[in-house]
Design a protein around this nucleic acid. Structure first.
Lengths: 184, 184
DNA sequence: ATTGACAGGCTAACGTTGTTAGCCTACGGT
DNA sequence: ACCGTAGGCTAACAACGTTAGCCTGTCAAT
């Protein structure tokens, strides 16, 4: 058991990175049903119980994947907002694009309480930065925008909108306010 | 096997209503982990396999509960918006109140694709009506508002906002736009 | 009055899941 | 030369959803 001071990033071993990669691949390819201990172990050529030598339990394994997802999202949002004519629209588009591209991962990341204590430090903040910046460092409005985007994306991913819904129009309707208020 | 014309509400049997009630109670009290076939059967004094004489599988059982939830939400929203000075704020508050009061049910209803074909007719539409009315029968804005509310509520339920976040202020920031636009 | 269908319970069992216990082996440091 | 530890393994458990097959009571039709 490596000594890991509470509140510090654990620094993954090679095996843990392999596990995370295998899990990620399975999740992307087959969804949450495909993400089982035995399947992950199979992908690495070992048996399921051996995973527990590297990871305390399944939720910790999932967290490895989630952490990876947060970094990716952060990178995508940063890349999208840097020098964009309309940063807010670009941000929204990038957020949605990522979710649509990786719906299973998006659910794993956002459809449940987040074990922040087990997440590497700063990961979440980094992902939130582009949002805060785009919205003028107003926490309340940032949270409102996040909620709107998350709501739109999750409802779309889960097919909850009627098939004839004009989602771009709905996005526009929702974003209008934020843009407006920024200009005032 | 009762003949149930496709697309028509099945009309529950007494036993099915009992099953739904037991499931609902378990879900409210213990969350999704508590909602198992055996636990539901126990609550009714029967064995798990007997449930399958009344319900095809677990997701159908869950759908009984979900349908009940939709009716309750619809009633709550209708009651809240009737003769409210600020219908939109009242609607938002009622929506949140329901979700906060029944978080497990809210997740079951809204965190996954919805099997509309197995849901009694009109249930979903009825729940959507107060929203549409409050927003001036503009579908795009209605969906944007729904997404915002769902995002706020689900992120709150899952503890995703920082503990010091001022959620009422975030709600206000998000709702401002809708109110504004209505007045114009 | 007898029959027979069927509704609705039961037990036994299967396959899959996460997880634990306990064993074995190879390697690296004292 | 030792020995601890990292990291595999097999066997097994409990809980889950679900199926097969049986049995009994009720009730309608002959």
């Amino acid at each position: 058991m490596a000594e890991t001071p509470a509140g510090t990033s654990p620094a993954l071993t090679e095996r843990q990175r392999q596990i995370a990669a295998a899990a990620r691949a399975l999740l992307d390819a087959e969804g949450p049903e495909g993400l089982t201990m035995r399947r992950v172990a199979d992908a690495l050529g070992i048996k399921a119980p051996s995973l527990y030598k590297h990871v305390p339990d399944k939720t910790a394994l999932e967290l490895l994947v989630v952490a990876e997802g947060f970094v990716e999202v952060a990178e995508a949002l940063e890349a999208a907002t840097v020098s964009a004519p309309d940063p807010l629209a670009a941000l929204a588009k990038a957020y949605r694009d990522y979710a649509i591209a990786h719906p299973h991962l998006y659910r794993l990341m956002n459809y449940q309480p987040l074990r922040r204590d087990l997440l590497p430090d700063g990961v979440e903040e980094r992902a939130a930065m582009p949002l805060l910046k785009a919205v003028g460092h107003d926490g309340d409005r940032a949270r409102a925008l996040w909620a709107f985007a998350h709501g739109m994306v999750s409802l779309e991913i889960d097919g909850r909108f009627p098939p004839d819904a004009d989602l771009p129009a709905a996005w526009a309707a929702g974003l209008r306010t934020f843009v407006q208020e920024l200009r005032s």
